[in-house]
Design a protein around this nucleic acid. Structure first.
Length: 200
DNA sequence: CAATAGATTCACT
DNA sequence: GTGAATCTATTGG
């Protein structure tokens, strides 16, 4: 497994977003890897993207969107949910851009996720931008960090075959993680194109 | 200032 | 399908 470096994110925003599909998002918490395969992303690109937080200029919240690639942009939405973005743009350009991570497939640390998503079916643990941050324990304390730096607790990896994980099932965590699993479709979102789907 | 909309999710009908 | 939860930023008087 290799961690994605700044070179990966120092490219065109749309290209980078597309290439993130299938990669792993990893959060190391207390030495444990909690990770999911990225199956849905949404790109926010440039000054002219009216859907972007940065459409009306720099504010305290969106400042990192104007900065260098590879940095996390995590903010609170609707007063309750944390959404994770990563900055992606060619080095040295001056426009704001970010890629929102919209959905994952749970891959590692299933027990950790199950404990944080009690009462929900496995397919719902990470099937939404607010859900995946809950499952992986990602919040604003990680905002603005360099996700490409060695030692960073939050980072991306190239996807390679990841062995299935044996997880305790039964009443203690109230969820049967052995339920039949069906892969989620890969989706790439842009404002004017609802989404482009790609085979998983 | 007050009102409102928002890159959402959940419980309920 | 509808409403509530409740922070940030923008809009309007």
């Amino acid at each position: 497994m290799s961690r994605l470096t700044q070179t990966f994110f120092a490219r065109d925003t749309l290209t980078t977003a597309h290439d993130l599909l299938g990669c792993l998002l990893v959060h190391e918490v207390d030495g444990q890897r909690v990770a999911g395969r990225i199956v849905e992303v949404e790109a926010y690109t440039g000054h002219d993207d009216l859907a972007s937080h940065a459409a009306r200029g720099k504010t305290p919240r969106n400042t990192v969107m104007f900065g260098p690639p590879g940095i996390s942009y995590i903010y609170l939405i609707y007063g309750m949910y944390q959404l994770l973005n990563v900055i992606a743009k060619p080095e040295g350009v001056d426009y704001p851009a970010a890629i929102l991570i919209r959905a994952l497939e749970p891959v590692e640390g299933l027990q950790f996720m199950a404990a944080r998503r009690t009462g929900r079916r496995r397919v719902e643990w990470t099937s939404g931008p607010g859900r995946l941050t809950l499952a992986l324990a990602i919040d604003q304390s990680l905002n603005g960090i360099d996700m490409t730096a060695p030692g960073s607790p939050l980072y991306f990896e190239e996807e390679i075959d990841v062995p299935g994980e044996q997880v305790q099932t039964g009443p203690r965590i109230g969820i049967n993680v052995s339920e039949p699993w069906q892969s989620m479709p890969w989706r790439f979102w842009l404002r004017d194109n609802p989404f482009v789907s790609r085979a998983g």
